[in-house]
Simulated assay, not measured.
Amino acid sequence: MRHIAGRRTAGIVAALAVTTLVAAGCSDDNDNDKDKAASSVASAVTGSEGASTSAGEDGGGVVTLDAADGSKVELTGPIAGKYAAATEAQKKDLGKPMTGDDAAGTSDSGVVFQQFDGGVISAANGTLGTPAYITWGKIRDAWNVDRAEDGQPSDDGKGGSDGPLGAATSDETTDGDMKKSTFENGEITYDTKTDKVTVTVDGKTVDTE
């Protein structure tokens, strides 16, 4: 994943009301239910800060947010779903979506992402239903460090989802003073009491930076 320096900048994000609908089957008996579902999802909900959600052509939601530069940023697929399902505290910590060439897109590994002032939402791919996760703070910073295949920091290595840790597989969890995020090939922990970050790749602890 392309690197954007992370900082947990508090931004005020409008509350979103989103209805998640699952339509199953394709028989004529389900036509009315599917029509109702499509109609419900297609109804836009607009917040006081200009955030809105509506249906995309693929049946998934589209979340539109105001960026810091005044432009509009559209979230789609798993990224939109994760943002819509986030708590108000998470949205506040994420802040406004970033813009520019490195702010969103698809990494070399196929991971889709959207950078925010205070974090990043990423998913292993852009297919609807693929789980998406929020990564931020010092864990995000350590994930973005360029690393060799063995996980050690290297100027010739790769960082983020393209690096040896791979894609995110969890949101940040908290157990006492310890915060942790897991990845395809390891985990990163942050001890808020000691301010220590520990990076583990393929079961081996490696240098943080």
Rank of each mutant, 00 (worst) to 15 (best):
R2P: 14
A5N: 06
T9D: 04
A10N: 09
A10M: 05
G11T: 09
A17I: 11
V18H: 09
V18M: 05
T20K: 11
A23V: 13
A24D: 14
D33M: 06
D35M: 10
S39Q: 11
A44V: 08
T46M: 09
G47S: 15
S48K: 15
A51H: 12
A51G: 06
S52V: 07
S54F: 11
D58S: 06
G60A: 07
V62Q: 08
V62E: 08
L65G: 03
D69G: 03
V73W: 14
V73K: 13
E74M: 06
G81H: 11
K82T: 08
K82Q: 11
A84S: 14
A84E: 13
A85N: 15
A86S: 15
A86P: 02
T87R: 14
E88H: 11
K92P: 00
M98P: 04
M98A: 07
G100F: 06
T106M: 10
D108M: 09
V111R: 09
V112R: 01
G118P: 01
V120T: 09
A123H: 06
T127D: 12
T127S: 08
L128G: 08
T130A: 04
K138R: 14
V145A: 08
D146V: 12
R147S: 04
R147Y: 02
P153E: 01
D155V: 12
D156I: 06
K158A: 12
K158S: 12
D162S: 02
A167W: 05
A168G: 14
S170P: 11
D171V: 12
K179I: 07
S181N: 14
T182E: 13
E184A: 11
N185D: 08
I188V: 15
T189M: 03
T189C: 03
T192L: 03
K193T: 13
T194R: 13
V201S: 02
D207C: 01
T208R: 11
T208Y: 04
T208Q: 11
